[in-house]
Structures are given as C-alpha cells and as structure tokens.
Design a protein around this nucleic acid. Structure first.
Lengths: 235, 235
DNA sequence: CTGCATTTTTAGTCGTACCAAAAGTCAGGA
DNA sequence: TCCTGACTTTTGGTACGACTAAAAATGCAG
C-alpha cells in the first residue's frame, strides 16, 4: 500500500506524522497543536500545506479545531469515530428508506442486547435497569424528562456487556435518530405505553427469559417505528 | 444551532452549499467538481478557501479527490461512511483491547443475524448460503481461496435481512480486522475446522433452529478469536 | 476515423501580506 | 499582595499572485 512518496500529497505526510504523535502520546490529549508557523518550519512546508493537514486531522476527529482557537489534540475514542461519520449519515438519512434502515439495525442490536441481558446481567446490572425504569416511571407526566429517561433506560442495555463500543453506538443512534424522535408529539398516554413496554422488557430480563426479552423489545421498537411513520409518513 | 454567520468560517459555508448540491443531485454522482477557480468566482472567495472546502468534503467522503485529478462527486453510501471512520478506528485498534472490543460486537451482530436467518431466511437465502458453503468446502485445500469463501459465507448472513447497512458493516469488519486475520497461519486443518463450523451454522438455519444457529455461530467466532489470541497474544 | 504530439487547463505548492481574534504581558489600583 | 483592565504580541483566517507539473483538451497527420 506504500505509494509513490514524492508524488501528489505533501499534506498527507504531515497528517500521518502528527497522527502518529497523537497516538503515541507525544502530543497528549487536550494539548494544543503547535502553531502553524512552527509546523511549517519543522516540516519545511508552506502554511498552506500545514493548514490542509490540520483541516484533515480535524475532520478525521484527531484534533478539535474551533474557528479561531488553537486546535487541541483529542485522542480518538469511539465517540470521535461516530462524529466522523455523522456528516455522511445525515445525508443517508435523507434518502428514502434511510431512517428505516438505520432503525432496523437498532432493533437488531437491541434485540441482541436484550437477549444478552436476560442471560448475563449481574445484580448490579439489574439494579441499574430498575433504577432507570423507576426514573422513567416518575417522568411519565413530563414528556421532556420522559424522553431523557427513556433514552437512559435503553442506554443501560448498551452498558451491560461492558464493551465501550456499544455506548458509542447508542449515542450514535440517539444522535442520528433524534431529528425524527424529538419532533414527535409527546403525550402522557404514549409515555405510559412506552413505559409499559420498558417494564415488560425489564421483567423478561429479570425472569432470565431471553426470548421474552427479545420479543418485548422488538415489539416496543416496532411500535415506536409505527409512531414515527404515523408522524412523518414513509421515510 | 445556527451560529454567528459572519464569524469564523468561510469554507464551511461552501462545504454546506456543495454538500447540498450533491445531496439534491444538482451535482450528480461521478461528475467532476467545477474547477477551483470557478468556485472561487461563484462564491466570491479566494482559492485558499475553496481548497479547504474541497479538502473537507473529501475527508467527509462526499467527493473523491485523487492527488492530481479533478475531484469527483461520490454520492455517499454506507460504504463511504465506513471509510470515513477508518482512520480513527485504526487508531483505536492499536489500543489494548481495541481489537477484542470490536470483535465482540461482531459476535453480537452475527449472532443476531444467525437467529434472524434461522427464522426468516427464504428459499433463495438458503440457496445462497448453500452455494457459499459449497464454495467454502471446495476451498479447504487452498487457504487463500478459503479465506475469501469464508468471508463470502459470512457475507451472505449480512445480506439476508435486505438492509443495505448490514453489508457495509460486514465490509467494515473484514477491513478492520483483516490485519489480524490475514497474518494468521493458514492450515488446511484449520480450514476444515472452520468449514465444519460453517456447516453447523448452515444446518441450524436449515432446521429453523435459532438457538442452535446462534450457539454454533458464537462457538465458531469464539474459537476464531482464540486462534487470534494464540497468534498475537493479548490484543 | 484513429493515434500521437501540442496546447490549454487545472490542481498542488509556495510566499507574502493583512486583519481580527486570542493569548500573553504589564502597569495601576484595591 | 492580588486582582483587573488596557496594551502588545501571537496566531489563525483569508486574500492575491506566481510557478510547476500533471491531466485534459485540442488539433494534426496518417
């Protein structure tokens, strides 16, 4: 994969070099990048190239470049990876069927999570779920708060396997699907219905019944999708 | 979220504008972008800014900017989204536990796919699986070919739900995990073992037994992971 | 109509210059 | 002494102009 080194890209070399310094910790997380003028001297290139490199690193998520500020190193986490795709995904969601395709994968993933939870959840996990469920119940009259606690309940499912990739995925789903979700009419009746679904999922997990857990979760999300369709039509 | 418009970024406005033109099809897929000089005239900005915008669009995956060529529009697909994260993910995989975390999500996903296949696979799906399985069997002596057919067999699982997101995810897994996988010693005995595992998965799907399908798939991938560990130690 | 040489266009890079916003400095007052 | 606000320096954002080499377009000859 090693291409013609002196061919068409000076900036890419700088990108690679800086990325490596970030990865190895020579440039620690949170530290501002050296000034552009220093970098151009160090690499023997023009500021044009330096700026291109910075721009690239920024959209790669390795640094955070606020408009007029010094870019700061942002050691890549799974969240940064999600951010990096955000732009593309938002385009994909505007395509017909885009939202549905994404939502379907969410159903798949959470169905798996529910099964896994029913089989492997520890006492602490159950306690966390219970606590999230109670908060959700308390929020039924307050749609704003219900949305938050609803999210948090699902979030617990993503935490149970103790895999840092999963919470990032959850954040991705909530971020990307938020435009649809947040514009839906919020009614206490609906909140009640959703809470009941959460309770059913919780109960199934508590009973260590993977099939029931998956079924109730699928039912829950499928109904949620029906609500989305009722609001937005086919998307 | 609308910020101070005349504040700190001229390039971003151009990025937004061009991205919109791509999405709406004013700039169709495959068409080269207008020359930089035309764009600077059209937007009333300097070439510096145009180039920054192009660079950004490129790393966002909306256009493909080969070194000395005209950037061509590349309507974003799910594959492009995967590419966009590639850079970050490759960093994450170098972190301790990074590969395992990713592989675990793969096990989760494919476990779900196997269940779903057992429940919903059509005749055509089964036929595709069978065909992939046969190709896999025929390739047992040829490790190179076996790797390919192995991949293809798993790929069929990702196709069954008919959700375009899933094949993209499969491609992501194979791309990101390839460095580990392709360096593993290839032995016909191992191929035989993996083929047997594939056969077990296929049989379970054929028997419409989701539990067995999931179990055999988990077993298969867990053993594959053990092979990785045996080769690379803890990663 | 086809293949090749020539011209034109265009991306890549450099350098300089200027502005405005941060960041850093320092003096004066509480 | 410590805080505060004005002042200076640094630094990112943008513009303009120039030059090179590669790519694309053109035109010519066969």
């Amino acid at each position: 994969m090693a291409q013609q080194d002196e061919h068409g890209r000076a900036a890419d070399h700088v990108v690679l070099s800086i990325a490596e310094r970030i990865r190895t910790g020579v440039l620690p997380d949170g530290q501002p990048l050296p000034p552009e003028r220093d970098l151009m001297e160090e690499y023997g290139i023009s500021r044009t190239v330096v700026r291109e490199a910075v721009r690239t690193l920024s959209s790669r998520g390795l640094i955070e470049a606020l408009p007029r500020h010094r870019p700061v190193v942002r050691k890549p986490g799974f969240d940064a990876a999600i951010d990096a795709v955000g732009s593309i995904v938002s385009h994909l969601l505007l395509e017909p069927g885009g939202v549905k395709n994404l939502f379907d994968t969410r159903i798949m993933v959470e169905a798996g999570l529910a099964r896994q939870a029913a089989q492997q959840a520890t006492k602490d996990d159950i306690a966390a779920l219970k606590s999230a469920l109670d908060a959700n119940a308390a929020a039924i009259p307050d749609s704003e708060e219900f949305y938050r606690t609803d999210n948090a309940f699902h979030g617990v499912l993503y935490q149970i396997p103790q895999n840092p990739v999963l919470p990032a995925i959850h954040r991705a789903y909530t971020t990307w699907l938020a435009p649809q979700w947040s514009q839906m009419p919020r009614l206490p009746e609906r909140n009640q219905m959703n809470y009941d679904a959460h309770k059913a999922i919780f109960d199934a997990i508590l009973m260590r019944d993977p099939d029931a857990a998956e079924a109730s979760l699928r039912d829950h999300l499928t109904k949620a999708w029906a609500q989305v369709r009722a609001t937005f039509g086919d998307v």
